[in-house]
């Protein structure tokens, strides 16, 4: 059953065509890894799903709701599609616990006690229960990103969108974030991940999509596609990433 449906979705920035009539169905439980050269439209594709970018043509349906249906519907979509950013974007004036409890409190309308309990459980899950009272500035990049994942999960989304979640991290900190993501995938979370971590793609991904110039140029099983790239350009690209 598809939960995300791109229907000839286009996106322009002025004259620049960034998504070019993309057709794509993503099913519940899939872990889709998006790769492609810089500027090919990966972030834009992801950000159209939760309406951080407004689509310019075609349609895009997320969990049965069109991103064009209006502001209120867009907020419903966003509650069902959590997002994790390359730069973490934790709220600096809140502790880790407050960051994670924020969504349940202000979006789902949970009581303070209930939100706190949920937040602690999620921090436990990402291995940071002991950092609950710390401010983002007091955490390492890897820890911040794990808090950011917990914050997104706290709203209980059906889908998680990751935009290069480990690109801003030192190599030794990447693994702790990837471990959390792997665990999430094992629990059956539907995920769309922009990343250049090919080991993760092979191990965890159920599908690999290679984007070029706003179009999907390759779409297949990660292992097959990585081991036998169906196009010269993908082969080149993979050599650069490795």
């Amino acid at each position: 059953m598809s939960i995300i449906e791109f229907r000839k979705t286009s996106k322009h920035f002025g004259d620049l065509k960034v998504l070019d009539e993309v057709d794509l169905d993503i099913d519940v439980g899939e872990v889709v890894v998006l790769i492609g050269p810089s500027g090919s439209g990966k972030s834009t594709l992801l950000r159209c799903i939760n309406g951080l970018e407004q689509i310019s043509g075609g349609d895009l349906v997320m969990d049965g709701i069109s991103v064009r249906a209006g502001k209120k519907q867009l907020r419903l979509i966003r509650q069902e599609a959590g997002m994790v950013f390359q730069q973490f974007n934790l709220f600096p004036q809140m502790t880790a616990l407050e960051n994670v409890a924020f969504g349940p409190r202000k979006v789902r309308g949970a009581s303070a006690a209930e939100a706190r309990k949920q937040a602690l459980a999620l921090l436990e899950k990402v291995g940071l229960r002991d950092k609950a009272g710390h401010y983002p500035a007091e955490l390492s990049g890897g820890q911040q990103q794990r808090v950011a994942i917990a914050r997104a999960l706290a709203v209980r989304p059906k889908v998680m969108l990751f935009d290069e979640p480990t690109s801003a991290l030192d190599p030794e900190l990447k693994q702790e974030v990837l471990t959390v993501m792997r665990q999430l995938a094992q629990e059956g979370m539907t995920m769309v991940v922009v990343t250049h971590e090919m080991a993760f793609a092979k191990q965890v991904g159920t599908r690999l999509i290679f984007m070029e110039h706003g179009k999907i140029s390759v779409d297949g099983n990660p292992r097959d596609v990585i081991e036998n790239p169906p196009s010269e350009r993908l082969k080149d690209f993979l050599q650069h990433v490795e």
């Binding site: 951080l52 502001k71 966003r78 509650q79 959590g82 950013f85 709220f91 202000k106 709203v155």
Partner: peptide, 21 residues
């Protein structure tokens, strides 16, 4: 930074709550 406002919106908050909180 624009990212903070996007992080708030991405949680499903209306714009005014992003501003206030």
């Amino acid at each position: 930074s624009k990212g903070l406002s996007e992080a708030g919106l991405a949680l499903g908050l209306p714009q005014w709550k992003v501003l206030v909180y």
